[in-house]
Amino acid sequence: MATSVPLATTRAATGIPTARLAMWWVIASEIVIFGGLLATYVMLRLHHDHWAEEASHTSTLAGGFNTFVLLTSSLFAVLAHQAAERGRGVRAARFLWYTIGGGATFMLVKAFEYTNEISHGYTMFRDVFWSYYYTATGLHGLHVLAGMVCMAIVAAGARRGENLHRVELVGIYWHFVDMVWIFLFPLLYIAK
């Protein structure tokens, strides 16, 4: 790891810290990726009448529980940020680990759901609806996994009191992943 940063990194002509500004641009680029995917899903959903029937085979219970899990993990992420802002690295790291736990729970429930659906014949190849279902939730799941890995790295640093500003950044990313799920949930689990 580099021992110093360029002068450029420490400048903030906009008044927004460089790292956070970059994180907002990351979020912006993610908005169009998920936006494009979900927009096409909604269009096709309106086009194909039989998708409603296919959608009725998703588990509202699992989806609702996962929404609860992600909302709660977001709470932990923001509490971690609060702790980091007050300079309490160990506390921030603990909350980050709670968030990672939330992510792991989410992935477990998702795995259970996938297993259940696939074993009942609702595979990716059954219908284009299911192709979208697995693509959208799979892409989201990859984001959850990536967030968990990043948070583990940030938590390790925060425990030592290093790079506390990263707690906020990884939190912003996590909230975004949460927001994507907030839209995926009604689209895939509620509207039937």
Binding site: A12, A13, T18, L164
Partner: peptide, 8 residues
């Protein structure tokens, strides 16, 4: 503007 931004 131009304050030290990357502190926590």
């Amino acid at each position: 503007a131009y304050t030290a931004p990357t502190t926590p």
